[in-house]
Amino acid sequence: MTLPVVIVDYGMGNLFSVASALRYLGAEPSISSDPEVVARSPHTILPGVGSFRLAMDRIRAGALDEAMHSSLGAGGRLLGICLGMQLLGASSIEDGTTAGLGLVPNVVARLDDSGGLKVPHVGFNEVHVTERSGLFADLPEKPHFYFVHSFRMEEGSLSCPRATCDYGGRFLAAFDAGQVSGTQFHPEKSQSAGLTVIRNFLRR
């Protein structure tokens, strides 16, 4: 039996590419905006590109926040990608302060371009992982991933296994808090390294 994975559809993000990557790995993706489907999903992916505030409005309006909480309560696993990872945090200062899903205590702020850095941060950049296990198992010593973002999650006091990247200062590139995990980069767009991360998420 193939592994079912639900991709949460709230109208923002490249769902198609995430589904392609899941199919390649042998999983069976379904794209859904139905909170009942999300609530019952053992493996859920929250993608997203765009505005934090708009995303939270749409997620709340669709009762998808409660659905993701229910799925976690039943032992499910959740992976947020790009904006999807930021949404797992406490809040973001994009378009004024907006509360996130609060699954990790971290906050989201704009990348620092005061040093003349090009923002958004677009392209393949190196990340440093704290331990090559769990979500980060089997990665090369200096893995590279594709980023495209203007806001980033601060590392804060997070002590779980995590990855950081340096672009106008160090920021959280990914974290693995067990049931809840996230990647600021796009694993579905990062060749072998990216698909290894998605495989690791699905294997647990």
Partner: peptide, 16 residues
């Protein structure tokens, strides 16, 4: 340039 590992990517096909 990033060093990709095509063999690893091929090996990941159908791995879950």
């Amino acid at each position: 340039l990033v060093e990709w590992d095509p063999d690893l990517l091929r090996g990941l096909a159908g791995s879950v």
